[in-house]
Amino acid sequence: MLIMWWLTLATICLYVCWRDLKSRIVTNTSVIFLGCVLLTSKIFHGSELYFVNTLLLLLLGMLLWKLGVFGAGDVKLASVFALSIDPEYLLLFLVVVLILGGIEALLYLLIKKLKPTRIVHDGLPFAIPIVLSGVFSVGASI
């Protein structure tokens, strides 16, 4: 059962990353599916859900969205992951997201400089660092 759960989580996460990479869109449907998969794990294992973390991250994310720093889909994606991340790993989750996002930004600048025609969208597909950090943080929280 646990292997199926991880495979389902991985499939949804790969879809989210691919979609964000190709179109810079994180759909509500994929965030809802991801939330359902994470919730089923918590329900079956009797683990705690971290609503305070989620609410704080959602409020901070909404502020950053209003300032134009992050997309709304990225905020929702990070908030859904926060629902399953133990509070002791939440700061680590955020730091890893920012570090991976910084590496991604440097790679994008390098690619844009060397092959400007390769980058067809403005902005970064920030779902990739969120998903990578989120999956590892959820795994650490189990």
Rank of each mutant, 00 (worst) to 15 (best):
I111N: 09
V52Y: 10
A78K: 08
P125Q: 01
S23E: 10
W5N: 06
V37N: 02
A140T: 05
I130H: 00
L14D: 09
L63V: 15
N28W: 10
P125T: 04
G139D: 11
I85N: 02
H121Y: 06
L110P: 00
T8N: 15
K66T: 15
R19M: 13
I119G: 03
V26E: 04
M4R: 11
I85R: 02
V135L: 06
L107K: 04
V16H: 00
G46W: 06
K113C: 05
G134D: 01
C36Y: 08
F51I: 11
A82G: 07
I3G: 08
G123N: 02
V138A: 03
L100P: 02
L100I: 10
I25T: 11
S137N: 01
R24N: 07
H121M: 05
E48R: 09
R24K: 08
L91F: 15
L38K: 01
V96T: 07
L91A: 13
V26W: 03
M4Y: 09
L63P: 08
V96M: 06
T54N: 10
A72F: 11
V135F: 00
L34V: 03
F33G: 04
L64G: 05
S41W: 14
L49A: 07
V69R: 11
G71H: 01
G139P: 00
F93D: 02
S41Y: 14
L59Y: 13
L63Y: 12
